[in-house]
Nucleic acid binder design. Structure first.
Length: 289
DNA sequence: CGTTCAACCTGGGCGC
DNA sequence: TGCGCCCAGGTTGAAC
């Protein structure tokens, strides 16, 4: 679920907690298996208790909560993966709350809850130092952020690739933050067939791709992300995202293209669904003649 | 280099 | 009702 716009929405929704003290932290143990953490859950909880939240950063689809501890700065790196959410309001279910913190703001009476909730439990939580942050979110792992990626960035990393463009856009080393929804939407807006091999794309499209990536992700952030299907995704204050209203291809197999009425096709690439319009994203549309 | 598959999990939807 | 199957916003590692 959470791609760049959803994770950015999470970041913005908890920014007001910066400056708070972590009055308590726990990984509730329920019947379900625990999520993956490093170090062990109890160790993380014990370490961050009493620390101060000093910043909330986003790296691609990852969130990094900067915490000031007696031992120095540490970061709680949270990867929501498929169904993870950061919430300051009551979560959809009690049993899928994976990390529950209570944050005490100066001058406030009672602590505010901050919950990492994750239905499927594929998300991860890591407590790292500066070196660990670099290993988890640094440039060796994540390429330029999708909100600021340039045509030169894309051309450098992808122009010689033999992969299909859709698959390449999901590569977080190339550009950080694009997932299955936004890859499909970006390619429809640029008019590129998702199966096109990167090295066959004309030079000028890298600039277009980067521009559309920036503007589309920016617009999706403004609309607080995409809530689709079972509407599992919600903002930290339990609002639904609104960008799904702007989707032109994702999840619309068989339905008419919003531009040309041609039925949207669904194919599988790298074991994942790809949605596209065979008319708007045809070779001829791409080459421009 | 690139692709494919399995794995990690829960839960909704569908056909029978 | 129940069962089996397919599907889902992501990432990683092994095999080929």
């Amino acid at each position: 679920m959470p791609e760049l716009p959803e994770v950015e929405t999470m970041r913005r929704g908890i920014l007001h907690l910066v400056g708070s003290r972590i009055a308590d932290a726990e990984f509730p143990r329920g019947p379900k298996r625990p999520i993956s953490t490093t170090p062990a859950p109890a160790r993380i909880a014990a370490t961050i208790r009493g620390g101060q939240l000093t910043a909330v950063e986003r790296y691609g689809k990852r969130l990094a909560l900067e915490i000031e501890l007696p031992a120095g700065q540490r970061w709680l790196v949270i990867e929501p993966r498929m169904t993870g959410l950061m919430l300051v309001t009551p979560p959809p279910t009690v049993d899928h709350a994976r990390l529950v913190m209570r944050l005490q703001r100066a001058g406030k009476r009672s602590p505010q809850p901050l919950v990492f909730w994750d239905q499927r439990g594929l998300g991860t939580v890591r407590l790292v130092n500066a070196g660990g942050l670099d290993r988890a979110c640094g440039p060796s792992v994540l390429g330029p952020d999708g909100l600021v990626v340039t045509g030169d960035d894309l051309q450098r990393s992808l122009a010689d690739s033999r992969r299909a463009i859709k698959v390449a856009l999901l590569d977080q080393h190339a550009v950080a933050g694009i997932g299955n929804i936004y890859a499909a939407e970006i390619l429809h807006r640029v008019g590129i067939d998702p199966r096109t091999v990167c090295r066959r794309l004309p030079r000028r499209v890298w600039e277009q791709l980067a521009r559309v990536t920036r503007t589309l992700l920016t617009e999706a952030v403004r609309l607080e992300g995409s809530s689709i299907g079972d509407e599992l995704y919600q903002t930290p204050t339990s609002r639904l995202g609104q960008f799904q209203r702007r989707h032109r291809v994702y999840g619309r197999a068989g339905k008419p293209c919003r531009t040309c009425e041609t039925p949207i096709r669904r194919i599988i690439q790298a074991q994942r669904s790809t949605f596209f319009c065979p008319q708007c994203q045809s070779l001829s549309a791409r080459v421009g003649t």
